[in-house]
Computed example of a mutant assay.
Amino acid sequence: MSYHATDRSAVTTDRRLARRTVLATGAAILGVGAPSASIAASDGPEQTNKASSAGSCDSELDRWDRPVVRTDADWDTTVSDARYCSLPCALTESTPLRIGQQIRLSGGGPNGYETAAFTVADHRDDGAVGLTDGGLSRMDLADGDGVTIGARPVHPSYASRNAARLNEEYAEYLVGDVAATSVLAMAPHGGHIELGTDFQAERVAETTGGLGWVAAGFYDGAGTYNRWHVPSIDVEIDSFPALSGLAGGTYDWTVAFHGLADDAIIVGGTASEVDRQTVADAITARLPNTPVELGSDSTTGYDGSSPINVLNRIGQTGRTLQLEQPKSVRVNDWHAVADGVADAIGELSA
Protein backbone atom coordinates (compact mmCIF):
# COMPACT_ATOMS: atom_id res chain seq x y z
CA MET A 1 0.00 0.00 0.00
CA SER A 2 1.58 3.28 -1.05
CA TYR A 3 1.23 6.68 0.57
CA HIS A 4 -0.52 9.57 -1.13
CA ALA A 5 -0.84 13.10 0.17
CA THR A 6 -4.62 12.75 0.43
CA ASP A 7 -4.48 9.59 2.58
CA ARG A 8 -5.27 10.13 6.27
CA SER A 9 -5.41 7.41 8.90
CA ALA A 10 -8.64 7.12 10.87
CA VAL A 11 -8.64 9.16 14.06
CA THR A 12 -10.20 7.39 17.03
CA THR A 13 -9.13 9.80 19.76
CA ASP A 14 -11.78 12.02 21.30
CA ARG A 15 -10.46 15.36 20.03
CA ARG A 16 -12.20 17.49 22.60
CA LEU A 17 -10.92 15.37 25.50
CA ALA A 18 -7.43 15.52 24.02
CA ARG A 19 -7.68 19.32 23.73
CA ARG A 20 -8.62 19.66 27.40
CA THR A 21 -5.70 17.43 28.38
CA VAL A 22 -3.15 19.49 26.47
CA LEU A 23 -4.59 22.83 27.53
CA ALA A 24 -4.53 21.77 31.17
CA THR A 25 -0.78 21.25 30.95
CA GLY A 26 0.02 23.84 28.30
CA ALA A 27 0.55 26.77 30.66
CA ALA A 28 3.92 25.34 31.67
CA ILE A 29 5.32 25.95 28.21
CA LEU A 30 3.84 29.33 27.37
CA GLY A 31 5.76 32.50 26.64
CA VAL A 32 6.66 34.95 23.94
CA GLY A 33 9.98 36.66 23.49
CA ALA A 34 10.51 37.65 19.88
CA PRO A 35 12.83 40.55 19.09
CA SER A 36 11.25 43.91 18.31
CA ALA A 37 13.13 44.64 15.10
CA SER A 38 14.80 42.65 12.35
CA ILE A 39 16.09 39.17 13.06
CA ALA A 40 19.86 39.18 13.43
CA ALA A 41 21.94 36.74 11.45
CA SER A 42 22.81 34.89 14.65
CA ASP A 43 19.12 34.81 15.62
CA GLY A 44 19.79 35.57 19.26
CA PRO A 45 22.59 34.66 21.68
CA GLU A 46 25.43 32.50 20.49
CA GLN A 47 24.66 28.81 20.77
CA THR A 48 27.08 28.08 23.60
CA ASN A 49 26.69 25.92 26.69
CA LYS A 50 24.57 23.43 24.79
CA ALA A 51 22.27 21.50 27.12
CA SER A 52 22.58 17.75 27.21
CA SER A 53 19.80 15.74 25.59
CA ALA A 54 20.76 12.59 27.47
CA GLY A 55 18.94 11.35 30.55
CA SER A 56 15.67 9.92 31.72
CA CYS A 57 13.59 12.68 30.09
CA ASP A 58 14.02 10.95 26.74
CA SER A 59 12.12 7.91 28.02
CA GLU A 60 8.81 9.64 27.18
CA LEU A 61 9.21 8.73 23.51
CA ASP A 62 8.47 5.22 22.27
CA ARG A 63 11.47 3.96 20.30
CA TRP A 64 12.30 0.92 18.21
CA ASP A 65 15.68 -0.16 16.80
CA ARG A 66 15.64 -1.60 13.28
CA PRO A 67 18.03 -2.03 10.33
CA VAL A 68 17.62 0.02 7.16
CA VAL A 69 17.30 -1.32 3.65
CA ARG A 70 17.34 0.42 0.29
CA THR A 71 13.98 0.54 -1.46
CA ASP A 72 12.96 1.33 -5.04
CA ALA A 73 9.36 2.01 -4.00
CA ASP A 74 7.60 4.49 -6.26
CA TRP A 75 5.75 6.58 -3.68
CA ASP A 76 3.51 9.43 -4.80
CA THR A 77 5.10 11.92 -2.43
CA THR A 78 4.55 15.64 -1.97
CA VAL A 79 8.26 16.50 -2.03
CA SER A 80 11.51 14.55 -2.49
CA ASP A 81 11.22 10.87 -1.54
CA ALA A 82 14.33 11.40 0.61
CA ARG A 83 11.97 12.62 3.34
CA TYR A 84 9.82 9.48 3.38
CA CYS A 85 10.28 5.91 4.58
CA SER A 86 8.52 2.58 4.93
CA LEU A 87 8.19 0.75 8.26
CA PRO A 88 7.88 -2.94 9.17
CA CYS A 89 4.32 -4.27 9.19
CA ALA A 90 4.97 -5.64 12.67
CA LEU A 91 5.25 -2.06 13.90
CA THR A 92 2.36 -0.50 11.98
CA GLU A 93 0.10 -3.34 13.13
CA SER A 94 1.07 -3.51 16.80
CA THR A 95 2.19 0.01 17.78
CA PRO A 96 0.84 3.57 17.36
CA LEU A 97 2.95 3.95 14.20
CA ARG A 98 0.82 4.42 11.07
CA ILE A 99 1.20 5.21 7.37
CA GLY A 100 0.96 8.97 6.83
CA GLN A 101 2.33 10.05 10.19
CA GLN A 102 5.62 11.79 10.94
CA ILE A 103 8.38 10.08 12.89
CA ARG A 104 12.03 10.75 13.67
CA LEU A 105 14.88 8.51 12.60
CA SER A 106 18.14 8.63 14.56
CA GLY A 107 21.53 7.04 13.99
CA GLY A 108 22.75 8.79 10.86
CA GLY A 109 26.41 8.85 9.84
CA PRO A 110 28.95 11.69 10.06
CA ASN A 111 28.09 13.07 6.61
CA GLY A 112 24.33 13.10 7.12
CA TYR A 113 21.76 14.08 9.70
CA GLU A 114 22.11 12.26 13.01
CA THR A 115 18.35 12.72 13.49
CA ALA A 116 15.69 13.90 11.01
CA ALA A 117 11.94 13.95 10.48
CA PHE A 118 10.40 11.45 8.06
CA THR A 119 6.86 10.75 6.87
CA VAL A 120 5.79 7.10 6.77
CA ALA A 121 4.85 6.31 3.17
CA ASP A 122 4.39 2.55 3.26
CA HIS A 123 4.86 -0.66 5.24
CA ARG A 124 6.97 -3.69 4.43
CA ASP A 125 7.22 -7.36 5.47
CA ASP A 126 10.94 -7.78 6.10
CA GLY A 127 11.29 -6.04 9.46
CA ALA A 128 13.49 -3.22 8.15
CA VAL A 129 13.06 0.51 7.61
CA GLY A 130 12.95 1.20 3.87
CA LEU A 131 14.73 4.30 2.55
CA THR A 132 15.28 5.42 -1.02
CA ASP A 133 18.74 6.37 -2.25
CA GLY A 134 17.90 9.94 -1.29
CA GLY A 135 16.83 8.92 2.19
CA LEU A 136 19.98 6.87 2.76
CA SER A 137 22.11 9.76 1.56
CA ARG A 138 20.22 12.23 3.73
CA MET A 139 21.19 10.21 6.83
CA ASP A 140 24.53 8.92 5.47
CA LEU A 141 23.39 5.32 5.87
CA ALA A 142 23.89 2.08 3.96
CA ASP A 143 22.00 -1.23 3.77
CA GLY A 144 22.19 -3.01 7.09
CA ASP A 145 22.97 0.03 9.22
CA GLY A 146 20.80 0.42 12.29
CA VAL A 147 18.46 3.29 13.13
CA THR A 148 16.19 4.18 16.01
CA ILE A 149 12.57 4.99 15.18
CA GLY A 150 10.97 7.65 17.36
CA ALA A 151 7.18 7.77 17.54
CA ARG A 152 7.05 11.56 17.13
CA PRO A 153 9.15 13.93 15.01
CA VAL A 154 9.52 16.54 17.77
CA HIS A 155 11.89 15.99 20.68
CA PRO A 156 10.09 14.34 23.63
CA SER A 157 11.48 16.60 26.34
CA TYR A 158 12.01 20.00 24.70
CA ALA A 159 9.02 22.33 24.80
CA SER A 160 10.38 25.75 23.88
CA ARG A 161 12.16 27.55 21.07
CA ASN A 162 15.27 28.09 23.17
CA ALA A 163 15.56 24.43 24.09
CA ALA A 164 15.33 23.46 20.43
CA ARG A 165 17.78 26.18 19.36
CA LEU A 166 20.42 25.41 21.96
CA ASN A 167 20.33 21.72 21.11
CA GLU A 168 19.89 21.98 17.32
CA GLU A 169 16.59 20.16 17.69
CA TYR A 170 12.91 20.16 16.79
CA ALA A 171 10.22 21.13 19.31
CA GLU A 172 6.58 22.16 19.41
CA TYR A 173 5.08 24.53 21.94
CA LEU A 174 2.10 26.74 22.69
CA VAL A 175 2.08 30.49 23.28
CA GLY A 176 -0.61 32.87 24.46
CA ASP A 177 -3.97 32.05 26.01
CA VAL A 178 -4.59 28.32 26.10
CA ALA A 179 -8.32 28.91 26.58
CA ALA A 180 -8.69 31.27 23.62
CA THR A 181 -11.18 30.49 20.87
CA SER A 182 -10.91 33.77 18.96
CA VAL A 183 -7.61 33.32 17.09
CA LEU A 184 -5.24 30.41 16.57
CA ALA A 185 -1.93 31.44 15.00
CA MET A 186 0.22 28.64 13.57
CA ALA A 187 3.85 28.34 12.52
CA PRO A 188 4.35 24.75 11.31
CA HIS A 189 7.85 25.64 10.06
CA GLY A 190 9.24 27.85 12.80
CA GLY A 191 12.78 28.31 14.01
CA HIS A 192 15.28 28.20 11.16
CA ILE A 193 13.04 26.11 8.89
CA GLU A 194 11.22 29.23 7.65
CA LEU A 195 12.87 32.02 9.61
CA GLY A 196 10.62 34.55 11.34
CA THR A 197 7.34 32.66 11.09
CA ASP A 198 7.39 31.55 14.73
CA PHE A 199 7.87 35.14 15.88
CA GLN A 200 4.87 36.13 13.78
CA ALA A 201 2.60 33.45 15.25
CA GLU A 202 3.67 34.45 18.76
CA ARG A 203 3.06 38.16 18.07
CA VAL A 204 -0.42 37.58 16.64
CA ALA A 205 -1.34 35.33 19.57
CA GLU A 206 -0.12 37.99 21.98
CA THR A 207 -1.70 41.04 20.31
CA THR A 208 -5.10 39.40 19.71
CA GLY A 209 -5.34 37.59 23.02
CA GLY A 210 -5.33 34.34 21.07
CA LEU A 211 -3.40 31.08 21.10
CA GLY A 212 -0.33 30.14 19.07
CA TRP A 213 1.13 26.78 18.06
CA VAL A 214 4.71 26.54 16.81
CA ALA A 215 6.87 23.69 15.56
CA ALA A 216 10.44 25.04 15.48
CA GLY A 217 13.49 23.28 14.05
CA PHE A 218 17.20 24.11 14.11
CA TYR A 219 20.49 22.83 12.75
CA ASP A 220 24.03 24.16 13.09
CA GLY A 221 24.63 25.36 9.56
CA ALA A 222 22.73 24.96 6.32
CA GLY A 223 20.16 22.21 6.08
CA THR A 224 17.55 22.97 8.73
CA TYR A 225 14.81 23.00 6.09
CA ASN A 226 15.76 19.60 4.71
CA ARG A 227 16.14 18.13 8.17
CA TRP A 228 12.82 19.12 9.73
CA HIS A 229 10.44 20.54 7.11
CA VAL A 230 7.16 18.63 6.74
CA PRO A 231 4.85 19.91 3.96
CA SER A 232 1.61 21.38 5.30
CA ILE A 233 -0.50 18.90 3.36
CA ASP A 234 1.50 16.01 4.85
CA VAL A 235 1.36 17.10 8.49
CA GLU A 236 -0.43 14.37 10.46
CA ILE A 237 -2.03 16.14 13.40
CA ASP A 238 -1.63 13.20 15.78
CA SER A 239 2.13 13.23 15.17
CA PHE A 240 2.38 16.49 17.13
CA PRO A 241 0.94 16.04 20.64
CA ALA A 242 0.32 19.73 21.40
CA LEU A 243 -1.32 20.26 18.00
CA SER A 244 -3.42 17.13 18.43
CA GLY A 245 -4.78 18.59 21.65
CA LEU A 246 -6.06 21.63 19.75
CA ALA A 247 -7.96 19.66 17.12
CA GLY A 248 -11.70 19.73 17.64
CA GLY A 249 -11.61 23.25 19.03
CA THR A 250 -13.49 26.02 17.24
CA TYR A 251 -11.55 29.20 16.47
CA ASP A 252 -13.07 32.31 14.95
CA TRP A 253 -9.92 32.73 12.83
CA THR A 254 -6.98 30.44 12.19
CA VAL A 255 -3.88 31.86 10.49
CA ALA A 256 -0.67 30.13 9.41
CA PHE A 257 2.62 31.85 8.61
CA HIS A 258 4.96 30.45 5.95
CA GLY A 259 7.93 31.38 3.80
CA LEU A 260 8.52 31.04 0.07
CA ALA A 261 11.03 32.09 -2.57
CA ASP A 262 9.09 34.94 -4.17
CA ASP A 263 9.05 38.72 -4.16
CA ALA A 264 5.47 39.17 -2.98
CA ILE A 265 3.47 38.39 0.14
CA ILE A 266 0.62 36.03 -0.73
CA VAL A 267 -2.58 36.01 1.32
CA GLY A 268 -4.30 32.66 0.95
CA GLY A 269 -6.52 30.30 2.91
CA THR A 270 -10.21 29.48 2.69
CA ALA A 271 -11.38 32.98 3.71
CA SER A 272 -13.40 34.82 1.09
CA GLU A 273 -11.68 37.06 -1.42
CA VAL A 274 -13.21 40.08 0.32
CA ASP A 275 -11.84 39.03 3.71
CA ARG A 276 -8.41 38.22 2.29
CA GLN A 277 -8.36 41.61 0.58
CA THR A 278 -8.96 43.18 4.00
CA VAL A 279 -5.85 41.37 5.25
CA ALA A 280 -3.86 42.41 2.19
CA ASP A 281 -4.88 46.05 2.62
CA ALA A 282 -3.92 46.00 6.31
CA ILE A 283 -0.47 44.65 5.47
CA THR A 284 -0.03 47.16 2.65
CA ALA A 285 -0.86 49.97 5.07
CA ARG A 286 2.19 48.94 7.11
CA LEU A 287 4.43 47.91 4.19
CA PRO A 288 3.45 50.19 1.29
CA ASN A 289 6.49 49.26 -0.81
CA THR A 290 6.02 45.49 -0.62
CA PRO A 291 3.72 43.77 -3.15
CA VAL A 292 0.84 41.86 -1.57
CA GLU A 293 -1.25 39.46 -3.64
CA LEU A 294 -4.27 37.26 -3.04
CA GLY A 295 -3.61 33.55 -3.36
CA SER A 296 -4.88 31.89 -6.52
CA ASP A 297 -3.79 29.31 -9.07
CA SER A 298 -1.56 31.98 -10.59
CA THR A 299 0.41 32.61 -7.39
CA THR A 300 2.75 29.60 -7.61
CA GLY A 301 0.16 27.25 -6.09
CA TYR A 302 0.69 28.47 -2.52
CA ASP A 303 -2.88 29.61 -2.00
CA GLY A 304 -3.45 27.65 1.21
CA SER A 305 -6.93 26.51 0.24
CA SER A 306 -6.37 22.75 0.07
CA PRO A 307 -8.68 20.87 2.44
CA ILE A 308 -5.77 18.64 3.49
CA ASN A 309 -3.57 21.59 4.45
CA VAL A 310 -3.14 21.27 8.23
CA LEU A 311 -4.38 24.87 8.55
CA ASN A 312 -7.74 23.87 7.09
CA ARG A 313 -7.98 20.65 9.06
CA ILE A 314 -7.61 22.63 12.29
CA GLY A 315 -9.53 25.80 11.34
CA GLN A 316 -13.07 26.46 10.11
CA THR A 317 -13.65 26.54 6.36
CA GLY A 318 -14.04 30.16 5.32
CA ARG A 319 -12.15 31.33 8.41
CA THR A 320 -8.55 30.41 7.63
CA LEU A 321 -5.70 32.60 6.39
CA GLN A 322 -2.30 31.55 5.07
CA LEU A 323 0.55 34.04 4.71
CA GLU A 324 3.39 33.15 2.32
CA GLN A 325 6.30 35.59 2.52
CA PRO A 326 9.75 36.13 1.03
CA LYS A 327 12.73 35.79 3.35
CA SER A 328 13.54 39.51 3.26
CA VAL A 329 10.09 40.27 4.71
CA ARG A 330 10.33 37.54 7.33
CA VAL A 331 13.74 38.79 8.48
CA ASN A 332 13.22 42.56 8.36
CA ASP A 333 9.47 43.17 8.47
CA TRP A 334 8.05 40.11 10.20
CA HIS A 335 6.45 42.29 12.88
CA ALA A 336 4.74 44.56 10.32
CA VAL A 337 3.09 41.58 8.62
CA ALA A 338 2.00 40.10 11.95
CA ASP A 339 0.56 43.43 13.07
CA GLY A 340 -1.23 43.87 9.76
CA VAL A 341 -2.82 40.45 10.13
CA ALA A 342 -3.86 41.28 13.70
CA ASP A 343 -5.33 44.60 12.51
CA ALA A 344 -7.35 42.83 9.83
CA ILE A 345 -8.63 40.12 12.15
CA GLY A 346 -9.76 42.82 14.53
CA GLU A 347 -11.64 44.54 11.71
CA LEU A 348 -13.16 41.31 10.45
CA SER A 349 -14.27 40.34 13.95
CA ALA A 350 -15.85 43.70 14.77
Rank of each mutant, 00 (worst) to 15 (best):
G248K: 06
V310F: 12
C85K: 01
V329E: 00
P307D: 12
D234N: 14
S53R: 13
V32K: 06
R319G: 01
T270V: 10
D126T: 08
R276M: 07
V214E: 06
V337A: 07
A336T: 08
Q47K: 14
Y3H: 13
G112S: 05
R152N: 14
Q316N: 13
V183G: 01
W75V: 04
G223H: 01
G304M: 10
E46M: 11
I308Y: 12
L294R: 07
G134F: 07
T12V: 14
R15K: 11
D297M: 10
L348W: 03
S272K: 07
T197V: 09
G245Y: 02
R15Y: 07
V147I: 13
R203M: 12
C57Y: 06
D62Y: 09
E236C: 12
E206R: 13
E194S: 04
G318F: 04
S59T: 14
P88S: 11
L87S: 06
P110L: 09
A215K: 02
L91D: 04
V204P: 03
G249H: 02
D343V: 07
Q325L: 12
A128C: 13
L323N: 00
P241S: 10
T6D: 13
D275L: 03
D43F: 11
H258K: 10
D198I: 06
D72S: 14
T119E: 01
R161W: 11
V204Y: 05
G134C: 09
F199W: 15
A51G: 08
P96R: 04
V120D: 03
L174W: 05
G304P: 11
V274E: 15
V79N: 09
A285V: 06
G109A: 05
S86E: 09
L105P: 08
Y3D: 02
Q322P: 00
W75E: 04
R152W: 12
L311E: 02
F118Y: 15
T132C: 14
N111H: 12
L294D: 05
A261V: 13
V235D: 03
R19N: 10
R104N: 09
R19K: 08
A171D: 02
A247H: 13
Q102N: 02
N49C: 12
V341A: 02
L141F: 02
R8L: 10
A350T: 11
A271N: 07
R319C: 03
L184D: 04
E172V: 06
Q200G: 12
P67T: 07
G44S: 04
A350R: 15
R16Y: 11
A10L: 15
D333T: 08
A205G: 14
G301V: 06
S53Q: 14
T181P: 00
W64F: 15
A271I: 09
D234Q: 13
T25W: 06
S9R: 13
H192P: 05
G245I: 06
T148V: 15
D275I: 02
D303N: 12
A163M: 11
A41F: 10
G221M: 11
R8P: 04
S298Y: 08
V79S: 10
V22Y: 00
G295E: 01
S106R: 14
F218W: 13
G130N: 01
L184K: 00
A151P: 02
G318K: 03
A261I: 13
A116C: 10
I103R: 03
S59Q: 13
I308H: 10
